[in-house]
Write a protein that binds this DNA or RNA. Structure first.
Lengths: 109, 109
DNA sequence: TATGTTTATCGTAATATTGCAATATTAAAC
DNA sequence: GTTTAATATTGCAATATTACGATAAACATA
């Protein structure tokens, strides 16, 4: 086959995987970092920041949006993009919880 | 075309993306969660935990290993798998840093 | 209305991922 | 040495992703 068997896993596992997958490309990491670095919403200007053609960037933005990592709202001629804090927070909480569990783990290996 | 243009991005961006990508599949999330839940290294037993065929699980384990998320050492007949804390910590630090930046961000959107 | 700007979508080629049956490898147990 | 087990590798089909040229859509402005 070739399609991921999402139905065999929990909603939470699928949800975390979806977010992680969206960040699993350096261009999308770069987009997220740019949005954070600029410390505000960015209207336009994202395409020029990346070494990729406009349709490719548009596609990456779409994937980040589908995964809930960014939000985009129409602002006249251009589109205003923002980090979606809630989703980033979910990821952060997830890794924080994992790290905590690892701390008090039995030592081995 | 079709291959990710890693050369255009920073080492750090590529590194984070590689780790995120490795976690971008629910089976691999499930493996990591199982290793953490069991609170110790697991020798054998991982294949039976997942609703996937043995070669598929083996492949997922390989990808987690390549991304540095788990370690595997030969333990007699079977193989002993472990979370690689350092890598998880890198991810955790990354998201913690992002969250911190988002906290003191200008409000918009 | 015509023109330029910005972003999205379509179509498509190249490549990567997912999943598994079959087979190989490795090492313990007999 | 043969059998049994656990895991890896190979080969392949189905599907997904990445990238971009061409084109469309939406809107501002001349």
């Amino acid at each position: 086959m070739g399609a991921t068997k999402t139905e065999h896993f929990t909603d939470k596992q699928n949800s975390i995987a979806t977010m992680a997958k969206a960040l699993g490309h350096p261009a999308r990491i770069a987009i997220v970092e740019y949005l954070i670095k600029m410390n505000e919403c960015i209207c336009g200007d994202i395409v020029n920041e990346l070494p990729l053609a406009q349709p490719t960037v548009s596609q990456h933005l779409k994937e980040l949006k589908n995964a809930g990592l960014i939000k985009g709202s129409i602002e006249g001629n251009s589109i205003c993009y923002c980090i979606d804090e809630k989703t980033i927070e979910k990821l952060q909480n997830y890794f924080a919880a994992i790290s905590k569990k690892l701390e008090k783990r039995n030592t081995c290996c």
